[in-house]
Design a protein around this nucleic acid. Structure first.
Lengths: 294, 294
DNA sequence: CGTATTACCTGACTTTAGTCAGATACTTTC
DNA sequence: GAAAGTATCTGACTAAAGTCAGGTAATACG
């Protein structure tokens, strides 16, 4: 066997296949076939509409119906007609269902913890897992407008500040920078966009409203796990779309020479370099871009 | 959702589960259930004894027998009684079986290649995959004595030289070092041990026979993907066992201050620091350990 | 208003996977 | 050389998963 790229990926596939087999085995230990177990977990995971469950689990409607009857007979779920459209059904866990769901969660968490405990450098392992999961889930990255005080937004911003502190020649202190008030990055004045993959925040960008005839792009950051996937480009596209929709005509931004990826992105995507337009101590480069209104 | 360690691992599990599902789907596309498809792939992968296939795929003897009859009826395999023990059966692919196996291989390779193509930094992705696969396959790491001219041994040695060149203050040129002739690291004088996980070499160590009353430990290296799993300790234990079995009474080694992990390992596992015993330009530390003969 | 569509259910199936108790043919052990 | 053990096969099962053709309400559309 050689050690070329393809065989390394194939080895990875074999390793995770057997790991997943182990998890399935432990699920079977609760005396329920995998079908009902997976359905129960999907319901516990927050999916409540039958049609949503069906497309998530890729089940035939007949099979789904029977699995639901089974869990209902066990007393684990309750099904009721939807409020708006009574053809649509909503499923929720009963108290007994919550208990059973928690038991499955515990099994999964225990296995995850065991993997972590065995490893001497868990941070490295987690970073590698994030990277792989992001690469695999690329098509499933979603872009969502959130409040900049959202827990996930804050975790991105902290990672962003930490990275600036590490990369800028003289460090970075957020209080010295023109820190946009969160209010300026919320509708209707501004916006804050997160890139999310299966709940994990992978990147962010903020649009800060000003009274000076332009809006500013701030806080563009992408997690190391997701670099090379085109996330920053998508974030900027989303931001420009939102700016256009809300009638903003001109966008400006500033950046630092220690962030060459960002610089390259702006240069490639239609931004024009301009004179310094603020007295923030950190930026070296200033750009603007005209927005085509919709 | 928070971004703690456990939920990051769970996210990883979900991502790879769906990726594996995609591969299984593509296997089903060849009009054969997963059971026979997996068996065919195991046979094509080099496993020929029925009992070996049975333990690898964890199949009941009845089920295995029926799956074999199925593939035989399709004309994909031939089964013959073993040469030494005619109860044991050996399976091999027919020409048609080779074709079908190659088709499955192509499906797997195509999926792997697609993942690689989508990513901008494939090296980083592969390194992350190696790390995860090693962490998961920890129990399945095997230690094998090989010829130091083996392709996998050479790939380890090259990685070792490259790492020395990067880490030593003044670089590393193997021709200046006391390069052991491969012959000195082969039985009966010496030995060369590889740590292998599912075919991928993860580490190595050499035992070099000398005429000076001791044998030397050389070329201890562990892949970054496998650090923190105790591979170096196991390699050294294996080496000492082999030394003891072949009647070696004293082991010596040298190392450099730029390799603190190695230094710590030797200090923790019964090695005694001694005076310089060679004129190799690279090492700063010298150790020896007495071997208890068996 | 009537017809088409949608969301789910039901019953009757097939396929796949897995189990288990013998049967058979060979090999090892005493 | 008989008894015990082993590797595989066969037949008769069960469980689980998946398919498919209708059926029943509720909703949407022209």
């Amino acid at each position: 066997m050689t050690t070329d790229a393809i065989s390394r990926i194939r080895r990875f596939q074999r390793a995770v296949t057997s790991e997943i087999g182990v998890l399935d085995e432990s699920f079977l230990g609760r005396g329920r076939p995998l079908g009902p177990a997976r359905l129960l977990n999907a319901i516990g995971g927050g999916r409540s509409e039958v049609s949503e469950l069906r497309s998530y689990l890729q089940l035939d409607s007949g099979l789904m119906s029977r699995l639901l009857r089974g869990l209902e007979a066990e007393g684990l779920i309750e099904i009721e007609a939807g409020a708006e459209d009574s053809r649509r059904r909503n499923v929720k866990l009963t108290a007994a269902g919550e208990v059973e769901y928690t038991a499955y969660e515990t099994l999964s968490n225990t296995q995850a913890q065991a993997m972590l405990n065995k490893h001497q450098a868990p941070d490295r392992l987690l970073a590698a897992m994030d990277l792989v999961a992001s690469a695999m889930g690329r098509d499933r990255i979603t872009y969502e407008q959130v409040d900049p005080r959202d827990e996930r937004a804050i975790s991105c911003l902290q990672a962003y500040y930490a990275e600036l502190a590490a990369r800028l020649e003289h460090g970075f202190d957020v209080t010295l920078s023109a820190d946009p008030d969160a209010a300026d990055m919320r509708p209707p004045r501004g916006s804050f966009i997160l890139a999310l993959s299966d709940g994990l925040p992978l990147g962010c960008v903020g649009l800060k409203g000003t009274d000076k005839g332009y809006s500013e792009v701030k806080r563009l950051w992408v997690s190391p796990a997701a670099r090379g996937l085109g996330v920053s480009r998508r974030l900027m596209t989303e931001l420009e779309r939102i700016a256009a929709e809300t009638g903003v005509a001109l966008l400006r931004l500033d950046t630092n020479r220690a962030l060459p990826e960002a610089l390259a992105l702006y240069q490639k995507s239609g931004w024009t370099e301009i004179e310094r337009f603020n007295d923030d101590p950190y930026p070296d480069y200033f750009f603007e871009k005209r927005v085509t209104p919709v």
